[in-house]
Design a protein around this nucleic acid. Structure first.
Lengths: 228, 228
DNA sequence: GTTGATTTAATAATTATTTAATAAATGCTT
DNA sequence: AAGCATTTATTAAATAATTATTAAATCAAC
């Protein structure tokens, strides 16, 4: 679940925003002044920050600039005056979007959603997809079931995790060590060789012809890649 | 220099935009309909795309969606009606920003600048560019794939590393020893002659005519250089 | 305890990399 | 401009590294 930080001194507005965002499935926290907003924002715990320009103690400009120096988190600036927008933009603070009060709550939610989507697209911290369909393959994450051309294949836990992770990041190469760390946990003790064996079994089950894999490609010297 | 594509059927507007952007140091090309806009946009040669919603042949929605499926390039949507913006946002096409006609040219430039800056912040850190495109060459780092004029060529690990490193630092000459140290590690034991052989194989694969290299130049007595 | 999943280990198969030897090209000296 | 020294290109063979496969051992769930 995505975490959002609202930095806003007007309690009524902050809570209104929070309610709307929570209704759309986000986890929200509120900071009531620039000081605490900066402190929380710098923690790096949030996926997006909504930042009011006019704040007690430290103003929105400086909060934005300082957070931006350290983190790439999307920042949405909220201003009372439309004219401010050009000024802010001109300052090049690194805010990602600007929205003027009063705004329709739906608009805020739409922008939040759009920015989170873009950020995911660019950075690749993907949220779990419920279903993935590629070519003849259907991976149902909730049910943990996999179908190849409408024919169910039974996978073990590790096989499923492996397939799901690769399919979630298609076309990207992951080394055996990366896969091992991703799926077994970084402190797991063991050999990346086990990845090889699981890939082998997985292919046996989902590939028509194991010798020329259509889904999972071997990238020699680099790792494996799910072909899109 | 950043390349911008304007997809806009109204010639007057397109040229106005172009003039302003060129005055700010951008290289601009114009596509006058959805068809050619899509084709150019899909080439991946541009750093940003300005896309009008109403277009002949293929509308802006579909152009945006299709480009977005393949590329992460920032897309700015231009609409005539302010009311459209919420509709577009709701569709989740993956556009990065929205601007309504008529707009002050300064505003367009400011947004273009802001989006390019954000994009660089997130992606274009020279240390690990996700994709490099030069002339007909596309190097996809994450997928570890290389295309020459949309034709994939299969490279080995060392060949890929070599090409990627050189392309990341175009126009700069590296001696064989420097390359060996960079790619093999400073404590690697071995001969820089192996670099020569890898360059040879790399050229064989990516150069049209191996005798007159278009990508990797030999600088006699100094080393190799990726020609920009 | 039995079953099935996972890991380890050993070996085979495949592919990449390096070495080495020779040819070709370039620059320098006279 | 010819000849020599140096650097780079080319090629093939030898070596090294990586991945695939298989079977047996270990582990975990029921």
């Amino acid at each position: 679940m995505k975490q959002i930080l609202i930095v806003e001194d007007e309690k009524i507005i902050a809570e209104l925003e929070r309610d709307y965002l929570e209704a759309h499935g986000y986890k929200v926290e509120i900071a009531a002044d620039g000081d605490s907003g900066l402190k929380l924002g710098m923690s790096g715990e949030y996926d997006l920050i909504i930042l009011d320009l006019m704040l007690p103690r430290i103003n929105g400009f400086d909060v934005c600039r300082q957070i931006r120096e350290k983190h790439n988190v999307p920042i949405l600036m909220v201003t009372a005056k439309k004219e401010d927008i050009d000024v802010i933009r001109g300052l090049g603070l690194g805010a990602d979007d600007y929205i003027t009060k009063p705004f329709k709550p739906g608009e805020l939610v739409a922008r939040v959603k759009a920015h989170l989507a873009r950020y995911e697209r660019l950075i690749g911290t993907k949220e779990n997809k419920e279903q993935i369909r590629i070519h003849g393959l259907l991976i149902d994450y909730g049910a943990r079931r996999v179908f190849v051309h409408d024919q169910e294949v039974i996978l073990t836990t590790k096989e499923f995790d492996l397939l799901y992770f690769l399919a979630l990041n298609p076309n990207r190469v992951f080394s055996k060590d990366q896969l091992f760390e991703k799926l077994w946990g970084m402190d797991a003790l063991g050999d990346a060789q086990t990845v090889t064996v699981h890939i082998r079994k997985l292919r046996e089950k989902i590939e028509i012809d194991a010798s020329k894999s259509q889904y999972i490609e071997t990238v020699w010297g680099a790792g494996y890649r799910f072909r899109l």
